[in-house]
Write a protein that binds this DNA or RNA. Sequence first.
DNA 1: ATTCACCCTG
DNA 2: CAGGGTGAAT
Length: 508
Amino acid sequence: MAAAQLNMSQLDQHSVKAMLLQKHISELEKYQQYNGEKADSPTNESGNDSGCENFSDRKSDHDSSTNARSISPISDEEPKMKRSKLIDVVNVDAPVSQSRNMFSIRNLIYSKDTSDSETDQSEDSGNAASNSNGSSPPRPWSPDHEVMRKLKADLSTTLHSFVDTVVSDVCNKVSSNYKESLRNQRKAFHEHRLHLHQEDPMDTVDTRQIIEDAKPMLTAAAAAAQSTISSASPSIASFAAHAQRAQQLQQLTSRHTPSVPTPHQAILSQHLAARATQPQVFQREAPRPLGYPYTALQSSYPYNPMLNSATETYGRRPFLSIDPLTGRIKSEHEMSDEQAMIFGAAHPQEGLTPHHLKKAKLMFFYTRYPSSNVLKTFFPDVKFNRATTSQLIKWFSNFREFFYIQIEKYARHALSEGIENAADLKVTRESELFKALNNHYNKTNEFEVPEEFLDVALMSLREFFVNIKEGRDVDPSWKKAIYKIICKSDIEIPDAFKSATFLTDVAH
DNA sequence: ATTCACCCTG
DNA sequence: CAGGGTGAAT
């Protein structure tokens, strides 16, 4: 790598360009090859929906000095396997696209400048490593017809599909946005106004805005193509055609909107202008192992000026960005409310409302230990972040607390009444226990409590009953064994709960 | 270092 | 129901 830098300083502009080209060829080859190997992408859909499997059996043995806290060996078989947590937080980011060869083009567009920033070893290592695949380290390179032809073909293909990807993504966003807002309105108007007029101002604004925001991408694609071409070879007709296509698209969108450059465009033109005047060595990151978990940690990707510098400079988050790994357009995970509204999909809400609390309580009738994934799917109108996730989890923790306190209370009460047999215990909708629970989770009694909840209450009641009766409650952690049993009783929450308008649909 | 369940408290 | 503390697990 040191050699590479030494060579670099001595090379004239032409050689730099040439190397650049070769580098991209090798990248293309590499990524096409990589693409073939990784045809099947791993999908990280974690499978624990019940949350029960994750019950954490944490015995607190630490304070054995004061009170021996260990789960007394109970009659049933002690599950030996180690379990993680009651509620498992798994953020699954699914989008995996097959077009990996977008990568090179994306670097063309977004790669950092290496000349003005200090070129340290680590950055250089990326270059060296990328060359290590077959081609020898940077050697003086003379344009070769075969290579040029291959370059043209590869870049043409890549650029072509890149533009297609951009366009189709934008189209998809627009159409899905439109469909979503239609669907939402339909919900809101409660089924009678199915044929919504398309003149809804919100919709047209949305579409225009999306196109407007996507424009920089198209501009970038076109400009990058042109700058690349012009620096590589004076005239390559096939490229110009593609670039023009991208620009035509941009012009197409410009008709709808005033052509005031957006901050994105300003940034991009700065980048591109800088690149045009002083040809750079386009760097790429160090090669990833094949098992790179590209479904996560996208935000940590280093070379996305759109995310790093542009947003800081202009204080505005990008509405759409190019996924660093897939090359596809993606929306930002953290959109401002305004932008979230523009997207229209589900108006993600920042905080949890009393509405959500109410719904969560009803969900408790079905599941006492929901995983965070379940929570996320059943609150589609909530914009989840750390705080809201914690809050929801805390809610269910509080629900459980209240539930078990009530159960224990009535178990002790039954015991004090002289009930001998746990089988004599029962829980009906007329039971005081049920009324207490219902009054907590379903105060207005708008919701019909599922039968299964009565079973769970009864099961819990009996467990508490026998445990207390057997005197196991002297063990400070005696309840944990019960929790372990009860958490298995979670059942599927009806799909109706997934609707953001569930309460208005069902409760009224 | 972070996250979460649980406990306790207000 | 939220906050704070603790222990445990990742």
